[in-house]
Design a protein around this nucleic acid. Sequence first.
DNA 1: CATAATAGTGTATTAAATACGCATTGCAAA
DNA 2: TTTGCAATGCGTATTTAATACACTATTATG
Lengths: 244, 244
Amino acid sequence: METIIGNLSVDCVIFGFNKQSLNVLLTKRVLKDPETDETLINDYTLQGHHVMVGENVDDAAKRVLLEKTGLKNIYLEQFHTFGNTDRLKNAKDQLWIKHMYPMVSDHVVSVCYYSLVDSTLVKPDKQHDFTSWFPVADLPELGYDHAEMIKLALEYLRNKIFREPVGFEMLPEKFTLSELQGLYEAILNTEIDRRNFWKKVSQMKYVIPLDERRKTTARRSAQVFIFSKDVYERTKKERLSLSY
Amino acid sequence: METIIGNLSVDCVIFGFNKQSLNVLLTKRVLKDPETDETLINDYTLQGHHVMVGENVDDAAKRVLLEKTGLKNIYLEQFHTFGNTDRLKNAKDQLWIKHMYPMVSDHVVSVCYYSLVDSTLVKPDKQHDFTSWFPVADLPELGYDHAEMIKLALEYLRNKIFREPVGFEMLPEKFTLSELQGLYEAILNTEIDRRNFWKKVSQMKYVIPLDERRKTTARRSAQVFIFSKDVYERTKKERLSLSY
DNA sequence: CATAATAGTGTATTAAATACGCATTGCAAA
DNA sequence: TTTGCAATGCGTATTTAATACACTATTATG
């Protein structure tokens, strides 16, 4: 018999990229008054769940990801734990909690993760709950403190991507340089000079050009690259140079 | 009546600087067999405690800091939550937990913080428990997963100090340039060129030279500086420049 | 078959990081 | 009281990285 740890949950900010924008996977939360049919709650939340007794917290996050995306072994990074007593005290959230989880404490501490997926591999429509992608630049109304979580997750992701090549997690195995650039532009919300970007990437020995081209939306076909985690790990030490 | 949340604790990596080395505040953990007087446990742990019902997790960390250092309003940063089920499963730790906290679950998730203090303000000798400073480069045997915590906290601190001027939290209000440099060298475990360091610091408008000198260990007296949090906050936006 | 849109490859300029030269101060040893 | 010397104070030269921008190549489309 599995039971939950009443005061502890995980929430996952699942980032995806669809060649246009950086997106987050969200699930619709709807509650209607059973008598008047009035819509009491109609907003979105992140993917989350309580941690089970005897379950590693990291494993709880992986469980949530598997349930919501069908994917295993995807990039996952813990970024913050939200532990204020008032974080679920909003009226709508209280209503929802009483309706859905009547036995749960009202001080739930949430360990938050962000994960990076190739969103073409995720089929949220196949879920029985209403789960879909939203661009981070244009989010719907969010329940709990999930807006704050997404904001912080994005900050952590932006910091991370400067230091480590995690962006490849959100692209198919084979990609073109403009796809990679589009990803970086979407994450960092800036425009990048194409030529300087090319120069930068061509220095990275772990981004390997293939003897293969592919038609994109463009007229001219573009060269195809892959990311080699192997080469990255091997050359890691060389690149960890610090100023000061 | 205050009760604890059985599955949730906080641990604090308290960093201090004593003009020589970067230090961590640790508390001795001793257990002897009541019959044979054999020493069963003799090691050190970080400062930690369970979170109380109805208490913000951040406040629990502040409470621990106030108890162990007597200081309020000190620099505090959450950096990671350790949530593996086996993190307290070491034989010594099990023994200690059964002896000290017989009612507590054996899956305790710990939210970890690091804090930066001017260690001259902390008088650990006045504590009734055996609390003292240890250089991070030469730590004693540590209980639980606290060695891992300190290692990770140091990584986070090193990253942080590149981006934000948090080092001043560990110095007295007035300091000389060589004291500041010594601090950076201790944290980053590198040697820094004195002249380049001076150049860098003189660009920081929030490090303000005073019309005052002080004798250090040196022959010649050195100029005294203060850190202005005010000026730092005001000029923050200008400095947040991103490459790419 | 000219056009337009994206791909591919540079070079020039600016800014930052690093290396290092040298004069100054003032206590301590001679 | 003179002088060595260790640390302070202030530069310039070199290397490296970031940014700006010029030009050619390819190919779907009208």
